[in-house]
Simulated scan of single mutants.
Amino acid sequence: MSKVEIRPADSWADVESVFGPNGAYGGCWCMWFRATNAGFRAWPPAERRERLRALVESDAPAPGLVGYLDGAPAGWVALAPRADYTRLARSPVTKPLDPGETGVWAVTCFYVTRAGRGHGIPAALLREAVSYARAAGACVLEGYPTDTGRKLQVSERYHGWLSLFTGAGFTETARPTPTRPVVRITL
Rank of each mutant, 00 (worst) to 15 (best):
S2F: 12
I6D: 01
I6T: 03
P8T: 06
A9L: 08
A9Q: 11
S11V: 14
W12G: 03
A13G: 09
D14G: 14
G27V: 00
G27K: 00
C28S: 01
W29N: 00
C30D: 01
M31R: 02
M31K: 00
W32Y: 08
W32D: 09
R34K: 07
N37E: 11
G39H: 09
R41E: 07
R41V: 11
P44M: 07
P45M: 01
R49F: 03
R49G: 03
E50P: 04
R51M: 10
R53A: 01
R53W: 00
L55R: 13
L55I: 08
V56E: 00
S58M: 03
A60N: 09
A62M: 07
P63R: 07
G64Y: 03
G67H: 12
D70W: 08
A72W: 03
G75A: 01
V77E: 01
A78V: 07
A78H: 06
L79T: 13
P81T: 15
A83W: 01
D84W: 05
Y85W: 05
P96A: 12
L97F: 05
E101N: 06
G103Y: 13
C109K: 03
Y111N: 10
V112Y: 13
G116M: 12
G118M: 13
A124N: 13
S131R: 15
Y132E: 14
A136Q: 15
G137C: 05
G137M: 05
A138I: 05
E142R: 12
P145D: 07
T146Q: 15
L162N: 02
L162S: 03
L164G: 09
F165L: 13
G167T: 12
G167N: 13
A168C: 15
G169M: 07
E172I: 11
R175K: 11
R175C: 06
P176V: 04
P181K: 12
V182E: 02
I185N: 01
L187W: 08
L187Y: 08
